[in-house]
Amino acid sequence: MTDQLDATWTWLRTSPLLGVLLTLGAYRLGRVVHERSGRHAATQPVLIAVVAIAAFLLLADVSYDEYLRGADLVVFLLGPATVALAVPLHRQAAHLKRLLVPLLVGVPLGVVVSVSLGYGLVRLLGGGDELALTMAPKAATTPVSIVLSEQVGGIAALTAVLTIFVGIMSAVLGPWVMTRARIRHPHARGVAMGSVSHGIGTSRSLADDPEEGAFAGLAMGLTAFATAVLIPLLLAGLSRLV
């Protein structure tokens, strides 16, 4: 009997079923907790799910690679989901002309600030070049930040984690910080959220106000583009400075 249990567990831990079920189940749990807490900002479903799955993997001694066998099937959907961000943008296209100048100035400014401060501060505080390069692209959405991290010589897996957690921090604290800084216009709030915290910040903005969410989605797409274009130039300049 124990032999059969062991064999079954060995099968399950290497089966894609485990990663898919854990991810879907933990997300569902995250949504329930978020609703029960009256949609409190600190209970973002992604945060609850990540903590729950990480705890399970550590307790059950399942490696991240084993989990990814199934979880990669979920990650695949980020492709069509990124394409899908064209839809909220399409619905807000009437606002686009008025926002063209603010976007063309604001988004590149955001990229310059997050790449320079991210890279520069890690270097200045003694974190080393590899970790500084790992921090640099974290504000771009995950599929982009991972590719850019590999391209510039960072640790892609750590960039992915930093990207997710900057998104979570922004979803929890971003709107509060912006209100303290007297940033109140929904377009300004949306662009700021999308610029520094990609899809996870966008999901918080979409929940707060549909107009804010559409511009967060747009800023996220433009930030991905601007980061990819600017990061080689910025890093070439910064590596000489710091």
Partner: peptide, 13 residues
């Protein structure tokens, strides 16, 4: 959208 970011976040382990 948040569902799709969970696997990358679990990479923290």
């Amino acid at each position: 959208l948040q569902l799709l970011f969970i696997p990358a976040g679990v990479g923290i382990v």
